[in-house]
Design a protein around this nucleic acid. Structure first.
Lengths: 339, 339
DNA sequence: CTGAAAGCGCTAACAC
DNA sequence: GTGTTAGCGCTTTCAG
């Protein structure tokens, strides 16, 4: 039933040696094969429905054509957008993508890195932020072991020490958002800051606050879960504390939090933007269908994926590329100056 | 620099034979090893930071621990939800997921199946609908070759001939939707039917129409692209043709089309549901943030993924499991009977 | 319970 | 240009 056809079968069928068959089929670099023989081998292969065994090739060549991709959660639109870019780019390089999800668990992350090492992945791309004070010794060690093996590694989102990274300019984006909102006439803000220990959230929060300077003020900056529910709860709390009445705009450190806040505002009978303006961060594509359109800072997910693959496949070194973000003003933060 | 540690190194370090080291580390089924030696080997492995080479194991054992997953587009929320379930389930079975995207190209699909065969994948899950009249000879042949090799295969969405499948009951769901809308008092419908040759779209359209019977009528059933733009354009056209005024509700054969239609209605200054009611199909999670909440038929993406993996890993046979869909009534189709 | 040795399917020196 | 052959790192009979 499981009658595998091997290269020797093809060689025999074509009446050539194993080596010739191998060269004919994959076109080895140095040695070349007479066209006539190539044809004979190709035909024999087709006749027998031969498929090269990638595991055997990997073994003989000492390297695979697998690129490992680690994300927190592939169902998250941020990661799935990145994954799409990674898959596309990897395929263009003739690589297969081995996908694993870390569930935002640092221990698991290290474990999966080890798994990639076992698989002899050609390169590995790690997406997704980590916590600031996180004990990442295990991760660092796994990464080091991986790198020592000659595996290309790239991190997406926030730089990982010692690893080529393509970082999102969260600070810059947040600063640009602050500037835009100030320009539109907003002065008093509430910030849904996300988890305090999360680098991405922190950068966005601080970037916003710093850029505000003395041109604006922050009535409240609350710690929240980095989720829809986090944003939802936070807004309810702000309303309950009476802070909301005193605020021009609520700024969330990511889009899904902003959407949660939007839902909460609606539940409270508050209009967005009439009663409170709202901005997010991330630029996930599904925002398209939300009304009012959400003011946000777009992160170029596609570019992150593409560049990470290139980085992982290139000369390693401790590069940190940075990609910029763009402010997109939507209906959720109308121009106050006209009023 | 790339000094790989092999099992022989470990064996030497532990002072045992290669065979014993192998048995000690992976705990081979039949033969067992004296605990003391196991410990010595384990320690040696740890000391040398030994990692088994998965490609070599695959080669020696004749099988990999890879599960191939084929989707049209991993950035699509439908597929990313399925992928999340597949990855989770596969990991629980100790399998790695090799992800590839077909870009909705049948030729590419066959090609990727061949690739999975080369990779000696243990099992393959194919998600995503195909066209009805599609020349799928290449696909069928590739699948057959794969199956002959003993690789478990499962298809998600619509059954593939000769392949274990977990199908979505699109007809039933559409019929249930029709019944619900009729109950709510809707009578005249416009259907955004999707591409006529696409099985999924066709089943939903026909299921809806059949269930309507003589209790309702269809003013218009238009062919559209299965995308946001498709829904958008279709609604504009309906409005232009004056059909919309004559219709109680617009029913789209998938959610993103419904969202496109929603956007188009807004552009035309039409209120949903005041001026026209709207329903979709699919139940993608990002609908949560759309106002009004969209009436839709939810497809259990997670269950699809989980069951497909089980199917692919189980006894093959020509099984077709079917998963049901649930109608969820939202604000986009209010109860007309009160009015 | 342990070891020696024969492969798994392919590539890459190395000869001819 | 083509063929021979020695591995790649591991598992697994088969002897002991």
């Amino acid at each position: 039933m499981v009658q595998r056809v091997t290269l020797s079968d093809v060689a025999r069928e074509a009446g050539v040696s194993l080596a010739t068959a191998s060269r004919a089929i994959n076109g080895s670099a140095d040695r070349s094969v007479r066209p006539e023989l190539v044809e004979r081998v190709t035909e024999a292969a087709a006749r027998l429905q031969y498929t090269p065994d990638a595991t055997a090739q990997a073994m003989a060549r000492g390297r695979t054509t697998t690129l490992g991709l680690l994300v927190h959660d592939i169902a998250d639109p941020y990661f799935s957008a990145i994954a799409a870019a990674v898959v596309r780019t990897a395929e263009a390089e003739g690589l297969q993508v081995s996908l694993a999800t870390t569930q935002n668990d640092p221990a698991r992350e290290a474990q999966l890195i080890d798994l990639m090492r076992r698989q002899r992945a050609r390169a590995v791309v790690i997406a997704g932020g980590r916590s600031a004070g996180e004990r990442s010794d295990a991760l660092a060690e796994s990464l080091a072991a991986l790198g020592r093996q000659g595996v290309g590694i790239a991190a997406i989102g926030q730089p990982v020490p010692g690893v080529a990274s393509v970082a999102v300019d969260n600070r810059g984006g947040a600063a640009a958002l602050a500037a835009s909102l100030l320009d539109l006439g907003y002065r008093r803000f509430a910030v849904l800051g996300g988890p305090t220990d999360r680098v991405t959230a922190r950068d966005r929060r601080e970037g916003f606050l710093d850029a505000l300077g003395d041109r604006g003020s922050v009535a409240s900056s609350v710690e929240t879960a980095f989720t829809w529910e986090g944003g939802h709860r936070a807004l309810l709390r702000l309303a309950q504390d009476g802070v909301l009445a005193d605020v021009d705009a609520v700024v969330a450190t990511n889009d899904v939090m902003a959407l949660g806040a939007l839902a909460a505002a609606r539940e409270l009978g508050l209009g967005v933007p009439q009663d409170v303006a709202l901005a997010g961060f991330g630029g996930i594509s599904t925002l398209r269908d939300v009304v009012p359109t959400l003011t946000t800072v777009t992160v170029p997910m596609d570019e992150l994926g593409v560049r990470a693959v290139r980085l992982a496949l290139g000369d390693q070194g401790d590069v940190v590329e940075s990609v910029g973000c763009d402010v997109v003003i939507g209906g959720s933060t109308p121009d106050l100056r006209g009023a």
